[in-house]
């Protein structure tokens, strides 16, 4: 069994009087892609934000590569790459300048070859000099993916990365996720697209009302059975 890179144990999170997460446990091993599914408000984004270190749980712990996120310093952030439904980019800078800025934030040595490689990987090399504000929604999302993988993190958190992507971009993202997942990374991916989840992920985790309602290998599910499970989660 591969080593677990992301380990979430007994996680609780409350915003005001609303309990958003109620005792979530999950493990993502290296080389594994886990799809996090659930209706709006199920707690997917909150879980992603806690694993990314952007929010603190009220109870429970997240460990990345065996190191507790709550006890680690800033250095553990080097192990995390996050793609959110927001691009998390500076729209007045060019694609290249955005990546160069984040390369400095991650203390990367001679980052130019790596920046070039990731821009090619997301097919934005030809538009690297253009201001990000001139990019389409799909291009923004692809640059956002480039930013997340720039420092080659072993843990990738993809919060609805397929939002706004056309068919070509979506296929490119799929191929990139397979390539990244195959190279000893752990990828936690949230999406509303059930077919993509089955196609892209090795395992499926269905959240309902802050709890894990169902968790299984993607190979054991069909599109119809997953839709049935999702409909039950959404209805309750």
């Amino acid at each position: 069994m591969a080593e677990s890179l992301i380990s979430v144990s007994n996680l609780y999170k409350r915003y005001g009087s609303k309990n958003v997460l109620k005792g979530v446990n999950l493990d993502v091993a290296e080389g594994q892609v886990m799809a996090l599914l659930g209706p709006n408000g199920a707690g997917k984004t909150t879980l992603m934000r806690i694993v990314a270190g952007l929010a603190r749980p009220n109870r429970g712990d997240v460990t990345l590569g065996g190191v507790s996120l709550g006890k680690a310093g800033t250095e553990l952030r080097r192990y995390i790459g996050l793609v959110s439904h927001l691009p998390l980019l500076y729209d007045n800078l060019s694609g290249w300048e955005n990546l160069a800025f984040f390369a400095r934030m991650y203390d990367m040595q001679t980052p130019e070859p790596r920046i070039e490689a990731v821009l090619h990987a997301v097919d934005l090399w030809q538009r690297r000099r253009d201001a990000v504000r001139t990019y389409s929604r799909g291009m923004l999302q692809r640059l956002s993916i480039a930013r997340a993988i720039l420092h080659n993190p072993p843990v990738l958190l993809l919060d609805e990365p397929d939002t706004g992507l056309d068919q070509t971009s979506s296929q490119m993202l799929h191929s990139l996720i397979r390539q990244l997942g195959a190279s000893n990374r752990a990828i936690l991916l949230s999406t509303h697209n059930l077919d993509r989840a089955l196609e892209w992920a090795d395992s499926i985790c269905l959240l309902r009302d802050g709890k894990i309602a169902y968790q299984a290998s993607a190979a054991t599910l069909t599109g119809a059975s997953l839709r049935q499970l999702y409909a039950e989660a959404s209805a309750s």
């Binding site: 952007l54 800033t74 553990l76 996050l82 927001l86 500076y90 729209d91 984040f102 991650y106 203390d107």
Partner: peptide
Amino acid sequence: RGSLAALLLAPVD
């Protein structure tokens, strides 16, 4: 723009 989250994700004091 949400870029603050990306900044806070980086290993920056």
